[in-house]
Design a protein around this nucleic acid. Structure first.
Length: 129
RNA sequence: AGUGCAAGCCGACUUGCCGCUGGUCUGAGGUUAAUUCUUCGGAAAAGAGGAAAGUCCGGGCAACAUAGAGCGCCAUACUUCCUAACAGGAAGGUGUCAAACUGGAGACGGUUUGAUAACAGAAAGUGCCACAGAAAAUAUACCGUCCUGAUACCUAUUGGGAUAAGGGUGAAAUGGUGGGGUAAGAGCCCACCGCUUUCUCAGUGAUGGGAGAGGCAAGGCAAACCUUAUGGGUUGAAAGAUCAAAUAGGUCCCGCAAUGAAACUUGUUUCAUAAAAGGUGGCUCGUCUUUAUGCGGGAUGGGUAGAUCGAUUGAGCCUGGUUGCAAAAUCAGGCCUAGAUAGAUGGCAGGAGAUUCAUCCAUUAAGGAUGUUGAACAGAACCCGGCUUACAGGCUUGCACUUUUU
RNA sequence: UGGCCGAUGGUGUAACUGGCAACACGUCUGAUUUUGGUUCAGAAGAGUCCAGGUUCGAAACCUGGUCGGCCAA
C-alpha cells in the first residue's frame, strides 16, 4: 500500500491545467467542485491531482492553507480507491467552493465518495454527450 | 501582595504512527572522460513571523544607451548627530496645554514635572474669511461719549464736527496694566509687561543671557495657490541571465526586377527616392534609430513550451570588551539558522493544559472540588533597514496608588 | 507582484474654489375613481464607510484603516 504523495502526483503543468478546465467533465459534491479528464499522453506517469481554494471564499491565506492541507491529506490516504492505472491516466481538479472551514472528517468522507464516483463512472461517455 | 500606566522580551508543550520540502551521508540500477547526470530506496538531523500582513517610505540588486540642459512634476521641511539610505531613530531647542510651588497692585512673569506639535516663510505676491456685525483688513461710527448751530423751551428733536475709552456681534475687532492728560478721548505722554529689531556674549547649531532702539507697525488660513532650500533618470525579480525542442521565418550579403523626374538615341542614360515617422518619463532644445517591395542563392541571429541560475553568506546572528548621554560605531571569539514555485510545517490517537461556562463547598476576602470547553493576531514568495496596522496570554524593569506585616 | 479609482436616504446620482446635504425613482398618508392604475396634494426617511487631525466651520483638505471595483503581466 502506497500512502505517499510525491510531486509528480500533483498537477503542475500549465498546459494540462488549461486542458482540464477546457475539456474536463465536472460535477458538484458539496463542498467540492470536481473536474476530471482522462488522457493518454506519456508525460505524466501517474494520476495527477490539483487542489484549489478560492480567495473569494476564504480571505485569509492561513485558512486556505489549512483547507488545502486537509484536502491533500485525505486524498493521500484514500487514493488507492482509484485502483491501478490501466490505459488512460486521470487528472483531477478538486475545487473548494464553501466559505466555511470544515473539519477533516467531513472532508475525508466527501473525498472518498468523490473517488468512488470517479472510478465507477466511465469518463469517455461523459466526454461525448 | 494586588491594581493601573509606560518600556522591553517571549509568543502553546509533549509521546507514538502515517506523510510533505530542500540539503547531507549512504545502498542498488543505468549513464559519463569524471560522484558527470539520473531512477528507485534507506538513515539521522533541519524546516514560517513579531508582525511573514498593509505595500506606506528608504536601500541593495538588475535592465533600459544618453540617463545631458531648461521648465514642469513629485517628495521633504526647528537644530545637531546616527545611518548604505530614509518621510526612520537618538539627543537637544522652541511654542502650546495641564498640574504643583512661587513673585507682582495689575498686565504678566519664574521654577519643576508631564503631555503634545505636518515646528521653514503670512513685514514676495494672489486668493478666501459664510451668518452676525457699523466695520473682516483700506477702519467708510450702529449704540454711546464730548463740543457746537438751529427749533421747541429745561430736556427733548435735528444739522455739523471730535472720538476706537465703553457696549453689542463674531471663531477672530487693529498691543495690555496703572497713572498723567483732555471738552470727551486716544502711545497723545510716562512707568512696567508683552512684541519687533540692533549690538554683544555663550553655544557646532536650533537658540538663550545681557545692553540699547522702535512707540506698536505685523488679524487668521500655506493639511488654499504659492515662495525658499534640499532631494529625485525610469522601470521592477512576472527585473534580468544562460541552455533550448516543434512550428513559423527575422536580419545581413550578392544577383535580377521596381517608384518619380529629366534628356533624347524610344529603350536606354543620368539624377532623385531624405523628409518625415518613431524612441528618449510630461514639454522645449539636444540626441539616437528607421526608411518601398518581390523572386532566387548564401550566411546568421533572436526566441515560445520547458529547464537552470537570479535565490538565500548577509548593511547576517550570538557572546564579551572599548568609545559615546544616546541612537550607534568598532574590536575579539563563536555560529551557518526555511528556500517552496498550483506553492512545503499537516492528519489521526493519547497526555498535559491557559481560558470559558455550570454546579457544589468555604470565607472578612483571596479560594477549593467536580464536570464542560480546548489557545490571540496570523503563513515566507528576491533580500535587507524602518513605519503603520492586528494580537489571547506570560515574564522582567520602572513609576503611581491601595492593603497587610515589621 | 505593481499601479489606479470609488464608498452620500431603500435604489441610482448631485452638492462650484470648505459655509443650511439636493434631485429622481421607490415607501407611507390623503384626494380623485364602483375598484385598481394614472394623476394631484402632503409626509417620513441621511448626518455623508470607520477613526484621528487641520480649520471658527469638513461630504469635500491631510493621515491611518475597512470594503468594493478596474488595469498591466
Amino acid at each position: 500500500m502506497n500512502f505517499r504523495l510525491h510531486k509528480n502526483e500533483r498537477l503542475h503543468s500549465k498546459k494540462l491545467i488549461k486542458e482540464l478546465f477546457d475539456k474536463g467533465s465536472s460535477f458538484f459534491l458539496y463542498p467540492f467542485k470536481v473536474m476530471v479528464l482522462e488522457i493518454n499522453f506519456e508525460i505524466p506517469e501517474t494520476n495527477q491531482v490539483l487542489f484549489s481554494v478560492s480567495k473569494k471564499k476564504l480571505k485569509k491565506s492561513v485558512d486556505r492553507n489549512l483547507i488545502k492541507r486537509r484536502m491533500r491529506e485525505s486524498y493521500r490516504l484514500n487514493k488507492q480507491i482509484l485502483g491501478e492505472i490501466n490505459g488512460g491516466k486521470k487528472i483531477i481538479g478538486l475545487i473548494y467552493v464553501s466559505s466555511e472551514i470544515v473539519t477533516f472528517q467531513v472532508i475525508e468522507n466527501k473525498i472518498k465518495k468523490i473517488l468512488t464516483t470517479i472510478k465507477e463512472k466511465p469518463l469517455s461517455e461523459k466526454n461525448n454527450p
